[in-house]
Write a protein that binds this DNA or RNA. Sequence first.
DNA 1: TCCATATTTCCATGATTATCGAAATAGTAA
DNA 2: TTACTATTTCGATAATCATGGAAATATGGA
Lengths: 118, 118
Amino acid sequence: METKTVIAALAALAQENRLAVYRLLVERGPAGEAAGAIAQALGMPASSLSFHLAQLRHAGLVLQRRQGRSLIYAADIAAMNALVGYLTANCCGNPAAAVVCCPPDAVPVPTRRSRART
Amino acid sequence: METKTVIAALAALAQENRLAVYRLLVERGPAGEAAGAIAQALGMPASSLSFHLAQLRHAGLVLQRRQGRSLIYAADIAAMNALVGYLTANCCGNPAAAVVCCPPDAVPVPTRRSRART
DNA sequence: TCCATATTTCCATGATTATCGAAATAGTAA
DNA sequence: TTACTATTTCGATAATCATGGAAATATGGA
């Protein structure tokens, strides 16, 4: 995964309205939701929503398809998986590390509970 | 995890220099690295790096501890795990979904081969 | 063709963010 | 206390981003 792609994805999600849109789409699953319905559900102006959907789409996080006059948007879960993989790669020098790595055991950092631990 | 926290974390990572800093710290593991060493490794001015480290710290992604005159920074892996959990929660209505969810089988989105499907 | 609907693009405005030199602060050691 | 080092804070500038109304584009149906 390219660094530019990663940054685009993170930037796309790092915005209140876009994160709300994305999470709504994640809930909807592959069926997705029409732009108008999203706008209504989140109470935002059509032009603003369109701007945000374009950002998410350009970042590769959502897919678009047409259904009659409506444009249906859906979260691209594969993209999210790739993003997560990138963020946790090389964790503590372990290329195989996925979500959980650097167990508390190995953390001599002042975590406030890393003192009397096993 | 609070939405504000999530946005702060995403915004912190959505910047070329900060992402580079964060990834370097992930590689270093719990031992971390001094600000000066990071600046040298990434070739950026001290004041700029300080600005970025503050952002990462404020977002809860890195920890700071003092060692003599140096300030050592280290990635907070627990925070990253929480972030990943938030992003993939409620995936396809499955609260237990972690990294992989919404298998390709179930994707009727115009993937260019999802036409002769159910 | 003409109209209605769904959505996007355009555009101006306001707000937030990144950069980096210079000055300030914190710690160490004589 | 003075000097020295590591790092942060300040401050000005430039760049990027979000917002939403109005106009433009695309689709479907009479």
